[in-house]
Amino acid sequence: MTLMQNAITAAPLLSVQGLTKRYGARIGCAGVGFDLYPGEVLGIVGESGSGKSTLLSCLAGHQRPDEGRILFDGADVLAFSEAERRRLLRGDWAYVHQNPRDGLRMGVSAGGNVGERLMAVGARNYAAIRESATDWLGRVEIAADRIDDRPSAFSGGMQQRLQIARNLVTGPRLVFMDEPTGGLDVSVQARLLDLLRGLVRDLGLSVVIVTHDLAVVRLLADRLMVMKSGRVVECGLTDQVLDDPQHAYTQLLVSSVLQV
């Protein structure tokens, strides 16, 4: 029972209130609020144009919301200076792009890609940086002898795993993922999902993952938020939302998935 109590008494790592982003008269997302607790994976689903990507980019600091609050570990992120915000982005936070090319330096070796965040936070010992990089390549199942190869020589799945290693090497507490399995073969997706599940479990990561793939959130997310036209229409336990959807749109979304 102690474990249960721990999980319940802990303070939220990320607390979002009334987040709104407009593009002129058009709504990107409106009135979004949620709490994310340490070790929790929150899935955000919705069709394209539902505002899930806008929400993610506001959360991750790529765009500034028009209204609302984002508290990370109790601190008001929107009040941060540019320097503090960027420090957060290379330390406690990480962002996994859908397209690994957006999240990797394609002209830099795999080891350099993984080591960059370490060097960004002050690591100045080559051997130690290399050891960390080797360790992380192993954790994402990339052979150690590929450490000096450039990502352009890697397959799509390997590039995505490299991007994940590059992001996790500094031990972030919060990871944003934008369709991390999109554009990958089904078999490669499965392997990546398994890897992500293990990392989330072993490192106690908190994750916000945006996807339109309900199978991905079922396997990865503890909780689910369903978005439509910029607003959250339903949220709850992932399996509850998928198996007993309450909102008309969620029911439509769930019933539209082809059964395999």
Binding site: R90, G111, G112, G115, E116, M119, A120, R124
Partner: peptide, 8 residues
């Protein structure tokens, strides 16, 4: 940090 990536 990027400068050291080049040296790395």
């Amino acid at each position: 940090g990027l400068m050291h990536v080049k040296l790395y």
